[in-house]
Amino acid sequence: MSLIKVEHLQKAFEKSMPLKDINLEVHKGDVIAIIGPSGTGKSTFLRCLNRLEEPTAGTITMDGLVLTDSKCDLPKARRKIGMVFQSFNLFNNLNVIENVISAPVHLLKMPREEAIQRGMQLLQLVGMAERADRFPDELSGGQKQRVSIVRAIAMQPEVLLFDEPTSALDPTMTAEVLSVIRNLAEQGMTMLIVTHEMKFARDVANRILYLDEGVIYEEGTPEQIFDRPQKEKRAASSSG
């Protein structure tokens, strides 16, 4: 059974319609890389999944719960969907460990000591434990992104959404963040990653979505997409 099911998802703005008709099934353990030309609605699609963007039409179902239903308890549903942003969005008024434990303590009512202990373990895994008392403005971009990944997984989500997680980083920092994501993939975390890092997408993903013209233009394994492009436009873009 699929973890997330997207049917006929549509998102229209006043002057454009970035998403026309998106259909997708995400299975547990899937690592899905979403690629495509700039401005084709990759990020919009991702943000529709936890309704940071309100879809204009279509349904999104997760674990049998219809997220697009107006009666859906959205804050509660979002606890199961972690999100990592391009610009990190760490809470500037909290230090690293407080950023990590705030949601588990406030929303999951986890005891503070337990949350700190778990948070420190997770920070250890991404090499940020010794900076637990720093504030976001005292960290590099790569460090911030590693903390923001920890903040997302501290809620023990069923799926993680990455919205161009390395676009704001220089190459060395990109590498440190990608290795964290790679580790998560190896542990079987279900993830959807919007990225421009083709090599990384090919290495880490088991499925690649090529988004263009408001639809999933092409879908397949990395080999299918990168080595044997099926459609003409794809061929043109990957060679150019």
Partner: peptide, 18 residues
């Protein structure tokens, strides 16, 4: 305040008021 702060909080499951 950067709107990203609000988005990050919502994405974690906080309500608008929280």
């Amino acid at each position: 305040i950067d709107p990203g702060q609000r988005e990050a909080a919502l994405a974690l499951g906080y309500s608008e008021n929280q």
